[in-house]
Design a protein around this nucleic acid. Sequence first.
DNA 1: TCCTGCTATGCAACTCGTTGCATAAACAAG
DNA 2: CTTGTTTATGCAACGAGTTGCATAGCAGGA
Lengths: 185, 185
Amino acid sequence: MALEHAILVSLLEQPGSGYELARRFERSIGYFWTATHQQIYRVLKRMESDGWIDVREVPQQARPDKKEYSVAAPGRTALSRWLHEPIEPESVRHELAVKIRGAAFDDPVALIREVERHRQEHTDRLARYLAGERRDFTGPDAPATPDAGQELQHVVLRGGIAYERMTLAWLDDVLDTLHRLGPGD
Amino acid sequence: MALEHAILVSLLEQPGSGYELARRFERSIGYFWTATHQQIYRVLKRMESDGWIDVREVPQQARPDKKEYSVAAPGRTALSRWLHEPIEPESVRHELAVKIRGAAFDDPVALIREVERHRQEHTDRLARYLAGERRDFTGPDAPATPDAGQELQHVVLRGGIAYERMTLAWLDDVLDTLHRLGPGD
DNA sequence: TCCTGCTATGCAACTCGTTGCATAAACAAG
DNA sequence: CTTGTTTATGCAACGAGTTGCATAGCAGGA
């Protein structure tokens, strides 16, 4: 399980509430890990009862109070232990690829609009990542001499950018193939 | 859920037993979907009781009997229906990226060996995919005029190859970054 | 005033996926 | 002749992840 460790990393970078974590998982953490707010709240409960994180009730004006979590010493120890364990190289789950191979037994051309929709979504993601990179790492407001944490965040973001670029190129390949199959088949 | 649909596609390409499906999921299907044999057997049971697939007991010599499954008409209909439904663009789960960002709070250099291990695994995967591509699509024994099914299998395989190449380049970027952080930090 | 939307948290039920274990037939190696 | 490996199937228990729903404070607009 890596969700608890992803939460530890995120809280070490910046303490926050379950709600804030959920939004980070939609944004920066989203390009290598996803989680819904229900999952996050449940895991936060467990981590708190295990003593991995501390809570602080924070009253707010103009919005409901929140519980701000921060990493406690046992949480740091648990993260460190996990960092030194080997993990399995990840394996992909790509539903669209299942559909593409399945299209051989249906109408390949009917898939074009779906692939174009995915292409649009990946175009948007790439634009978001590039905007984030300019804002935090390569733009004029970025730190001139980044520390280790920023270097590591940047290299992970470059991975997200590379993934989106690769995916866009592949989706173009898929579209070419589907178009070729249209008239000739 | 796409596992049942991945199984339908695989059985349409070639009928087979649960065991054979499990091995296909380790091989060709593995670069866009994974499943263990327990999962496959359970889903096959459900698909059979739903009338999506037919079973045939096949006695074998020199090894235990097997149940060969093939797609029935309702299964084809179900697949076709699913193919015309939109799906969410996939989201990634990359544990290694969590570790890389976590390394900022531990020892970045300690991660180098783990990253190198992953690099080796992706090198092996790429070699397997390229060998499969030569065997089935670009080598001398490949069909000169591939049909739609083969074209679609090939474009999905090209996606797997592109993914592995992109990942290898990124892991090199990660290794460079970790090495840079070593002496200077 | 009511409705919508955002922040903020949570329960309950369910499905999906993993892990550990078990069985059994056949062959190959020692 | 016992042990290990490959093929082949399966159960039981657990943990991870999703979906639907509920609550509640406050803001802004119709």
